[in-house]
Computed example of a mutant assay.
Amino acid sequence: MTHIVLATDGSAFSDAAARFIVEGKLLQGEVTVHVVHVAPEVTGQVRAFVSKDAIDDWHREESEKAMRSVCDILGAAQLRVEKHALSGFPPDRIVALAKSVNADAIVIGTHGRGSFFDAVLGSVAGRVVAHASCPVILVKAPDKA
């Protein structure tokens, strides 16, 4: 069985990555697509005033919203999907998930902003590429996305 991790942030770029999986040549034999959304941890100041249950509920809701579109795209193609709603530092959590499911590839939609923005803001995709032990496929959305 082939395992593919699809990281999503709920954007059109993530949708393009899902379409790439559906339309691409990665699908050979049985495939499970592990859709992952990583919500950032909240600060200690927030934790002081908001209950852990409320924070966990918020993380779950945000992840469900972010994963909905790509899961719809993959489901329409009748692919096996497992959803992973995580929190923490996205590159670390994506790479760890890929290792835990023995992923054959990680697919990420990229905004394609260029090296200047990535140098200033950091790039989840760039960090995943640097640390993943499996191939990472970056998919840029069409210009109209």
Results as ranks from 00 to 15, higher is better:
residue 1 M to L: 12
residue 2 T to H: 13
residue 3 H to G: 06
residue 3 H to Y: 10
residue 3 H to F: 11
residue 7 A to S: 06
residue 8 T to Q: 04
residue 10 G to T: 02
residue 11 S to R: 09
residue 12 A to R: 06
residue 13 F to M: 10
residue 14 S to T: 14
residue 18 A to M: 12
residue 19 R to H: 03
residue 20 F to E: 07
residue 23 E to G: 05
residue 24 G to L: 10
residue 25 K to M: 04
residue 26 L to E: 09
residue 28 Q to I: 04
residue 29 G to K: 10
residue 32 T to P: 04
residue 32 T to G: 03
residue 35 V to R: 00
residue 35 V to D: 00
residue 36 V to K: 00
residue 39 A to T: 02
residue 39 A to K: 01
residue 40 P to K: 15
residue 42 V to Y: 15
residue 42 V to S: 12
residue 44 G to H: 14
residue 45 Q to A: 11
residue 47 R to F: 02
residue 47 R to Q: 13
residue 48 A to Q: 10
residue 48 A to K: 05
residue 49 F to A: 13
residue 52 K to F: 09
residue 52 K to G: 05
residue 53 D to K: 15
residue 53 D to R: 14
residue 53 D to M: 12
residue 54 A to D: 09
residue 58 W to H: 08
residue 61 E to Y: 06
residue 62 E to I: 09
residue 64 E to V: 05
residue 64 E to I: 04
residue 65 K to C: 02
residue 66 A to D: 01
residue 67 M to I: 08
residue 68 R to N: 10
residue 69 S to E: 06
residue 70 V to S: 02
residue 71 C to S: 06
residue 72 D to L: 13
residue 73 I to V: 15
residue 75 G to F: 01
residue 79 L to C: 03
residue 79 L to N: 04
residue 80 R to A: 15
residue 81 V to E: 12
residue 84 H to M: 05
residue 84 H to V: 04
residue 84 H to D: 07
residue 86 L to K: 08
residue 88 G to K: 13
residue 88 G to T: 08
residue 89 F to G: 09
residue 90 P to N: 06
residue 91 P to F: 05
residue 92 D to S: 14
residue 92 D to R: 15
residue 95 V to A: 15
residue 95 V to I: 15
residue 96 A to W: 04
residue 99 K to H: 08
residue 99 K to N: 11
residue 99 K to V: 12
residue 100 S to D: 15
residue 102 N to E: 11
residue 105 A to H: 10
residue 105 A to K: 04
residue 105 A to C: 08
residue 107 V to N: 05
residue 109 G to K: 04
residue 109 G to D: 07
residue 110 T to F: 00
residue 110 T to R: 10
residue 110 T to N: 09
residue 112 G to N: 08
residue 114 G to N: 10
residue 119 A to L: 11
residue 119 A to S: 05
residue 122 G to E: 06
residue 122 G to L: 01
residue 123 S to P: 10
residue 123 S to R: 08
residue 124 V to Q: 14
residue 124 V to E: 14
residue 126 G to R: 03
residue 127 R to M: 10
residue 127 R to F: 04
residue 131 H to L: 14
residue 131 H to D: 12
residue 134 C to P: 02
residue 134 C to K: 02
residue 137 I to L: 03
residue 138 L to Q: 11
residue 140 K to W: 01
residue 141 A to N: 12
residue 145 A to H: 07
